[in-house]
């Protein structure tokens, strides 16, 4: 052999790897920008539908029921109710939180839609629907226009919410 590998040496092509990677710039839009700017200040900002009065957090700029712009900003409470939850026991690629941990839908007081949050400072076998929780924010100098500004939610110490108060949000 002369040291040069020829196509014949390699034999027929049996597989072909074609790596594909695309990069994008995300455009949050007007409404979601307000939500993100709120996070930067350590508060949750939702938007109210002028037709049905529901408050969305974060709003994508429209009421998905009525199809009209949500333009009125609504400052929401720092506390809310766990409407449903999941205890994560399975490790997966890119996992940044030690398992087991609790992932829950949190309905902030004053909002008409829940969003997903990490629940900490409670044993995983004590998590329950109706648990009252409060947001724990990063240090003021670490606040950014991102949900990373919310470190996690923890029990607020209030009595559990009555099922009737969140049954429409499951």
């Amino acid at each position: 052999m002369s040291g040069q590998t020829t196509a014949e040496d390699l034999g027929p092509v049996t597989t072909l790897a074609t790596p594909i990677r695309l990069d994008f710039e995300f455009t949050p839009g007007v409404a979601q920008s307000r939500f993100l700017r709120g996070l930067e200040k350590g508060r949750f900002v939702g938007q109210r539908c002028p037709t049905c009065g529901k408050v969305y957090v974060p709003s994508r700029g429209s009421c998905p029921t009525d199809g009209v712009p949500t333009t009125e900003d609504v400052d929401l409470a720092n506390v809310g109710t766990v409407t449903t939850y999941c205890v994560v026991n399975v490790p997966f690629a890119g996992q940044s939180i030690e398992i087991p941990y609790i992932c829950a839908q949190v309905l902030l007081d004053g909002a008409d839609i829940s969003f997903m949050g990490l629940i900490q400072q409670i044993p995983t076998d004590e998590i329950r629907m109706g648990l009252r929780v409060e947001a724990v924010w990063v240090e003021p100098e670490e606040l950014t226009p991102s949900l990373a500004s919310v470190r996690y939610f923890r029990p607020s110490g209030e009595p559990d919410a009555d099922y009737e108060t969140y049954k429409d949000y499951l």
């Binding site: 455009t27 839009g29 007007v30 409404a31 994508r60 700029g61 429209s62 199809g67 712009p69």
Partner: peptide, 14 residues
């Protein structure tokens, strides 16, 4: 248009 998301872009047209 880096001001509006897809919904905000579409809503006035609809």
């Amino acid at each position: 248009d880096d001001q509006h998301n897809e919904v905000e872009m579409l809503m006035p047209v609809v």
